[in-house]
Simulated assay, not measured.
Amino acid sequence: MKITVRAAEEADLPALLALYGELNPDDAPLPGASADALWAAIAGQQGRTVLVAEADGTAAGTADCIVLPNLTRGGRAILFVENVVVAGRFQRQGVGRRLMDAAVLLGESADCYKVQLLAADDEYVHDFYRACGFQALAQGFRRYVG
């Protein structure tokens, strides 16, 4: 199986929405006009790259990456990774690893001093990120609003 990772384009939106449906199956699907408007805002955001992994030409996974400018660490930015998902039928075939490698390359190319992500409280997921070279160095907190 040939796996490639590239920056997503507007034409990838239906495939991205299907992947996000696997990530958050309880979420109601976005109406088309809303999804289009959100994609336009994401695509226009400086430092934002939504990666899409293709396996033999089929969208198999995605990761949303954003470079955040930073006033510490000598002004070196941070790359945050969110909404990482690999379609069920492509899991354990190298797709996730290729996505994480591409995210780290994005961080390196933007002279980021770290790549940061939060992971679900799932040992399999934690093992995956450790295998990709990430370390659990801090405790994450979140507060949902609205």
Rank of each mutant, 00 (worst) to 15 (best):
V86R: 05
V86L: 00
V86N: 00
V86I: 04
V86F: 02
A87L: 04
A87P: 15
A87K: 03
A87R: 05
G88D: 08
G88H: 15
G88N: 11
R89Q: 10
R89G: 12
R89Y: 11
F90H: 12
F90S: 02
F90T: 00
F90N: 02
F90Y: 12
F90D: 09
Q91D: 08
Q91H: 07
Q91K: 11
R92H: 14
R92G: 06
R92Q: 10
R92T: 15
R92Y: 12
R92E: 10
R92W: 12
R92F: 08
Q93V: 10
Q93A: 09
Q93I: 14
Q93M: 12
Q93G: 10
G94T: 09
G94R: 13
G94H: 06
G94C: 05
G94F: 00
G94V: 02
V95K: 01
V95Y: 01
G96C: 08
G96Q: 09
G96L: 07
G96A: 08
G96E: 07
R97C: 01
R97Q: 13
R97M: 10
R97E: 12
R97V: 06
R98E: 05
R98V: 01
L99I: 02
L99D: 04
L99F: 00
L99E: 01
M100C: 03
M100N: 04
D101P: 14
D101F: 09
D101M: 14
D101T: 15
D101W: 10
D101V: 14
A102T: 05
A102P: 01
A102K: 04
A103R: 04
A103D: 02
A103S: 07
A103F: 03
V104M: 14
V104W: 07
V104T: 04
V104D: 14
V104Q: 15
V104H: 06
L105W: 12
L105I: 10
L105G: 14
L105K: 13
L105D: 12
L105E: 14
L106M: 11
G107N: 04
E108C: 03
E108A: 08
E108P: 10
E108T: 14
E108G: 09
E108R: 15
E108D: 14
S109G: 11
S109R: 14
S109N: 15
A110W: 05
A110G: 04
A110M: 05
D111S: 13
D111Q: 13
D111I: 09
D111C: 10
D111H: 12
D111K: 12
D111Y: 10
D111P: 06
D111N: 13
C112A: 05
C112R: 06
C112H: 05
C112P: 03
Y113S: 05
Y113A: 07
K114W: 01
K114N: 01
K114D: 02
K114M: 05
K114G: 03
V115A: 15
V115G: 09
V115D: 11
V115L: 06
Q116W: 09
Q116K: 10
Q116R: 12
Q116C: 15
L117P: 06
L117E: 06
L117Y: 01
L117W: 04
L117A: 04
L118M: 11
L118S: 13
